[in-house]
Design a binder for these strands. Structure first.
Length: 425
RNA sequence: GGAGAGGUGGCCGAGUGGUCGAAGGCGCAGCACUGGAAAUGCUGUAUAGGGGCAACUCUAUCGAGGGUUCGAAUCCCUCCCUCUCCGCCA
């Protein structure tokens, strides 16, 4: 959520920065509501002050010996009643405006950082780094072909259990998934991340706090009988881990690594990535999350991205880092790096992690502050995948494929998986 | 799911209709004392919003939302949560 004071003091900046995202917003209506709301608040609180004084007067009169039904007291009571009624009217109006203002503010995305490159779409993202030698060659298979031959998962039977875009991992496939989760969590633990296993059903306040609601309700699965949703990413429960808290400055930064399943409707992606592990309604992910001091967030963004890259490097998977342009960034992000892993079978780079700094956007929605000296301020939040497990498995399969049909696994994984090769079962 | 108890400031804990944002303690900060520290003493110490250059001031907040009243932490209603016992259960 954007700062209301910014809306008041510098609305041009908001329009201009949202313009960099490719949005055209007219803030005059919003400003008008904000102004009305503030005027109303002033009127109401002045009236309440008078009401409070009246109440006290009655108390003092009675304590001083006046009869509760004396004319003097009666007159004050009537005055109190009159004020109460007026306040009620103003209050209702004020609440209406407040709700409207909040609703509209919640629908506005974060302002892009000044450092974010300007652009309209994916095509304008900027490659900033490349690591590893992308393996090239004819006859390299895609991960779903390899997995099929190795018997790593069931696709058709998964439709029976749930529906399309769900997968059932079997045998070595299930084992490799588990190995990857443990491997990643262990790696992050050595870098000061606290391991977290949060609820994966989250309430709507949590989704609002991290930015998925109100605008992206159609992207998540909702439980019909409760105010609970299946979380689309661990970013949601992790943000709300400290919702409505004031954190002592010495505790910052708080760094968390959480493994969770993630659930997404993937609406609007019919026909894309229909085979294999790339795009599923349910997938596993290890998420990295920082709560940090505003002055440290740029540095933290680099570090968090490096921590995600460390997983790819330990797994010997070639990747590149893109900086997303203003037009391609997510709703809550001020600045984003995407990590794309090389898939030799597909012959392309594929997103495997998205590392964003959200500034105080989520902190304001979620009321997460820190205390430094006398006052409290909003802190900054950052998140990034470290990494998406299914896509990591796909990359391992494609990058490790051998002429004899087996898959060579990276050395770092052997202690977790127990073998250095996948062979047909 | 049934029965009971309870939710007050960073924490503990008083407070059952009047000037209570709230005693007391702990913690924390400043000052004094000290060679330095401990102990001690004094002072200060919630959050959000509005007004003011500022000192300051107004409003709201005692789980949440309604209600009664001139006036509610305190009385009434609804909901949420926590704890204990019973039941059920991985």
């Amino acid at each position: 959520m954007l700062d209301q004071r910014l809306l008041r003091d510098n609305p041009e900046l908001i329009s201009q920065q949202l313009g960099r995202r490719g949005m055209e917003v007219d803030l005059t209506k919003l400003q008008l509501i904000a102004k009305q709301e503030r005027d109303l608040e002033e009127q109401r609180s002045n009236l309440q002050a008078e009401g409070n004084r009246t109440g006290k007067e009655v108390g003092m009169l009675i304590k001083g010996g006046a009869a509760p039904d004396s004319d003097e007291v009666k007159a004050l009571r009537e005055k109190g009643n009159r004020i109460k009624q007026q306040v009620a009217v103003l209050e209702e109006e004020e609440k209406g405006l407040e709700a409207k203002l909040r609703e509209q503010l919640l629908a506005l995305p974060n302002l892009p950082s000044a450092d974010a490159p300007e652009g309209k779409s994916e095509a304008d993202n900027v490659e900033v780094k490349r690591w590893g030698e992308p393996r090239q060659g004819k006859d390299l298979e895609e991960h779903w072909q390899l997995a099929d031959r190795l018997g790593l998962f069931e696709t058709e039977r998964s439709v029976r259990i749930a529906q399309s875009r769900f997968i059932t991992l079997m045998g070595d496939g299930a084992r490799l998934e588990r190995a990857l989760i443990s491997f990643m969590l262990d790696l992050h633990s050595t870098k000061g991340y606290t391991e977290v296993m949060p609820p994966i059903l989250v309430n709507s306040a949590s989704l609002t706090g991290s930015g998925q609601l109100p605008k992206f309700a159609e992207e998540s699965f909702r439980c019909a009988d409760d105010d609970l949703w299946l979380t689309p990413t661990a970013e949601v429960p992790l943000t709300s881990l400290h919702r409505d808290e004031v954190i002592a400055v010495e505790q910052l930064p708080l760094k968390y690594a959480a493994y969770t399943p993630c659930f997404r409707r993937e609406a609007g992606s019919y026909g894309r990535d229909t085979r294999g592990l790339i795009r599923l309604h349910q997938f596993n992910k290890v998420e990295l999350y920082w709560f940090c001091h505003p002055e440290k967030s740029a540095e933290a963004h680099e570090q968090l991205t490096l921590d995600a890259e460390a997983v790819l490097e330990a797994l010997e998977l070639p990747y590149r880092r893109l900086e997303l342009c203003t037009g391609d960034m997510g709703f809550s992000a001020a600045r984003t790096y995407d990590l794309e892993v090389w898939l030799p079978g597909a012959g392309s780079y594929r997103e495997i992690s998205s590392c964003s700094t959200c500034g105080d956007f989520q902190a304001r929605r979620s009321a997460i502050r820190f205390k430094e000296g006398k006052g409290t301020q909003l802190l900054h939040t950052l998140n990034g995948s470290g990494l998406a497990i299914g896509r990591t498995m796909a990359a391992l399969l494609e990058n490790g494929q051998q002429p004899d049909g087996s898959i060579q696994l990276p050395a770092a994984l052997v202690p977790y998986f127990g073998r250095e090769r996948l062979t047909p079962q």
